[in-house]
Nucleic acid binder design. Structure first.
Lengths: 183, 183
DNA sequence: CTAAACTTTCAGAAATTACTGAAACTTTAG
DNA sequence: CTAAAGTTTCAGTAATTTCTGAAAGTTTAG
């Protein structure tokens, strides 16, 4: 399995981006390689193509599976396991998003809730709690909203995006349109 | 400047979260401290409160300024500089979002565009370019949309969020409502 | 059961990233 | 101009993260 220059560039880049996206270089490279190949790849092929150790490859694949970005693919008559992307690009992007939310936002929300329950130990702490509350509410809004978008699915999301600045206008109309909404 | 237990917990947590949010532990702690204090803080006070070196503090403040999350605040009659948050929580959240987009998405979009221009070196590369194109379009949609949200501002965003699943319904109505839209 | 084919684990090495503190620099009061 | 008050830089060190490769583990064919 030797990579074309095109694939090589893309794989290298996704490796560099990897750490910014929440996983490390190798994991990013492995993901790119699997996504860009239509043929399922074995762990050994991946290790060879990327010139990384078999052990590292194994750990990377494990991590990508824990993110649900790739899945195993059994080829009849073959002993070894092959790997393919866990879904369309849209699905993968959602998974990354979701996973990052779990790591980057949820723990903070949870802590903020706890801190808001604590008895303030003085004047200043009351103001601090107000701030924390503000942060909490913002995070809550953002997560609620991002989940909403994920539920919409790609086509509707696309409509929404094409709407662009029109969203503002629609919002203004909304009350007239859905006056008796139940939620 | 000694921190109350409440502030300490929050600061420590934001430190831990720091690296997940794109900056390091110390930078996260400094930000939390500045945001939670209504009084402007000097570099020395920050270094003391967090027990970190003056040099590290200076670098952290510099980074936070480059992210536009804090700004200097001059106290008349005082020689030293003080620091305060660069805006409301909403503004800060937007800045973080924006900055991360620049680091995490823009470089990839740019590379993808370049790779799509390259002459494919074979059969397979054509399929690869199709994939890359798909990724590019998705990223483009996401960034366009996130900018849209930022322009809405917090109040409208809030309306939108309260709407929740209603968004889907509105989308279905949209064509009837804005049949002659120009964008 | 055994051997072959393959995978995973993990201790230590390598690479990367963050932090300290002393020296260099800047600004302002006098 | 000089000294004092403050800030920034950066070489070296410390801490953290990632990677390797050999050993241990697993599965299946026969």
């Amino acid at each position: 399995m030797n990579m074309s220059p095109l694939v090589t560039s893309a794989v290298m880049h996704f490796g560099e981006m990897g750490n910014r996206w929440g996983f490390n270089r190798t994991v990013g490279q492995i993901l790119a390689l699997i996504v860009l190949n239509e043929e399922p790849l074995s762990a050994q092929e991946i290790a060879d193509a990327l010139s990384i150790s078999r052990g590292n490859t194994s750990m990377g694949l494990k991590e990508l599976q824990s993110w649900q970005l790739i899945k195993q693919h059994h080829v009849p008559g073959e002993r070894k396991e092959f790997f393919v992307p866990a879904g369309t690009i849209w699905v993968l992007a959602n998974r990354v998003f979701e996973e990052r939310r779990k790591r980057e936002i949820d723990p903070t929300m949870s802590l903020l809730r706890d801190l808001m329950m604590d008895t303030p130990s003085g004047e200043k702490d009351i103001a601090v709690q107000a701030r924390l509350n503000e942060i909490h509410d913002l995070l809550e809004s953002v997560t609620a909203w991002s989940q909403e978008l994920q539920n919409l699915g790609p086509e509707k999301l696309d409509t929404l995006m094409k709407l662009g600045a029109g969203v503002g206008r629609i919002l203004e109309l909304k009350d007239k349109l859905l006056p008796a909404k139940s939620n």
